[in-house]
Design a protein around this nucleic acid. Structure first.
Lengths: 245, 245
DNA sequence: GCAGGCTAATTGTCTGACAATTTATTTTCA
DNA sequence: TGAAAATAAATTGTCAGACAATTAGCCTGC
């Protein structure tokens, strides 16, 4: 737990890294209380604001939580799947939107991973998952739905599919792939016809999962992937044509 | 860009959230310069240390970078795949180690996702990927290698396999699944016999990828998944027995 | 023309203080 | 004695102002 005064990095970054290492290595276990800000300041020989900046960095990653009051302080946080989902989605979304990732590449990644879940989903799906899928299909079928809401429902449907695999680690990993693509999907204008095609495929996927038929689910997912890809390419082509004007 | 004074959250958390929203929504684009800390403090009607805590939160997520000097300031950062990998791996590792995720579940997630990459890897692998795989197989074959180094090499081999799919989004998503499992794998003591079995399977996988034979690669991956699962279960059983003493 | 220094802007850090919140303790009163 | 209320203590949250360090641009002197 030492700092390098010659390091180009901020003191607060170094302190955050030092504490993060202690957490990752297991020296600081879940719910352990860190020393108070004053004690940390004394230990690292820096001022309290500097320590606070370091703690805020860790808080931003959900590594610690803070509590005010006499028995308060900073505690090592048990990273929940819920929190991890959130960070994962933010990161994935930004990664896709900032790096000119082509629609094709993102689409391929998403459907490749989703197809991997399908056999597990077919084997393990419960009533909850089927209900969620049915609910989203019903929502998508409302003609008055805005394109954005249609997309959101699409994402929700696919998350239900992934969750049906009943593996939280898988759900977590795929959250980014599925939700991160939403901004890209939002660029698509869904006609009544394309909506119908997508809903029909969703229904086929759900039927296959209900029947515990992994092969049929995979086939429908492949079709959906192809169809989505086509839609995306049309949008990109239209944008390119408009840009050329 | 307003704050809610009655919110239970810290001011710095609210400010960070406000700026994060501007970035995610695209109102602040890559390389855009944020107002100076003093200006932000005035705008949000808070003190500069509070603004700084907010900025450090964003910096911890690689959403901004800061620069000192006359033309310095905080700039919206282009989130690179490299940085995203790092965060992804830290989060995944902590998620697995803090939530008593069973070896089985993590293993299933990892191999399910990896198997999904295999067909793409078989189709697109380049010489670089094959070289990396060969290099890691050679490394693993050194009998003097520590268990930890063997694990690290195992992870590197599988990353090469994933990268061979030539889809950066896929590589990013799988970084967490593959690397996050390393601490769990590190609990395993690899005997000479189990190392031999793993290396043989790695060789089979590499041969299949080299021959662009997706089916053979999948079969070898399934065997490796089963074998890893068995090893893990033995370790867990031994631990449980020891705990019962 | 250019090398050097000067200036201004900005982030990084420090000091000290006070407010808000929560728990533990003590006091007070029935 | 018992319980409720007041008090104290510890801790984080916020503020104000200051100075140091760094960097870009300008400007002067040669």
């Amino acid at each position: 737990m030492k700092l390098d005064p010659d390091s180009p990095k901020d003191l607060s970054a170094q302190i955050a890294a030092a504490i993060r290492d202690e957490i990752v290595s297991g020296k600081l276990i879940v719910d352990a209380r860190l020393p108070s800000e004053s004690e940390l300041a004394e230990h690292f020989a820096v001022s309290r604001p500097t320590v606070r900046e370091a703690l805020k960095r860790l808080a931003a990653q959900s590594l610690i939580r803070t509590q005010r009051g006499a028995t308060g302080g900073a505690f090592v946080n048990r990273l929940s799947f819920e929190q991890a989902y959130g960070q994962q989605i933010t990161t994935s979304t930004l990664l896709l939107s900032m790096n000119e990732v082509s629609f094709d590449v993102a689409c391929e990644a998403r459907f490749t991973l989703e197809r991997a879940c399908a056999p597990l989903a077919a084997a393990r799906r419960g009533a909850v998952h089927l209900d969620r899928m049915a609910f989203e299909i019903a929502r998508q079928s409302q003609p008055t739905l805005s394109d954005e809401d249609f997309c959101a429902s699409d994402v929700a449907f696919h998350r239900a599919l992934v969750d049906a695999a009943c593996n939280p680690v898988l759900s977590y990993q795929l959250a980014g792939a599925v939700e991160g693509m939403q901004p890209l999907m939002n660029m698509i204008t869904f006609t009544a016809r394309s909506r119908g095609a997508i809903i029909a495929l969703h229904a086929r996927i759900m039927a296959a999962i209900t029947a515990r038929n992994a092969t049929a689910a995979d086939a429908a997912l492949i079709e959906l992937a192809d169809y989505t890809l086509t839609l995306g390419r049309d949008v990109m082509a239209a944008r390119a044509a408009r840009a050329a004007d």
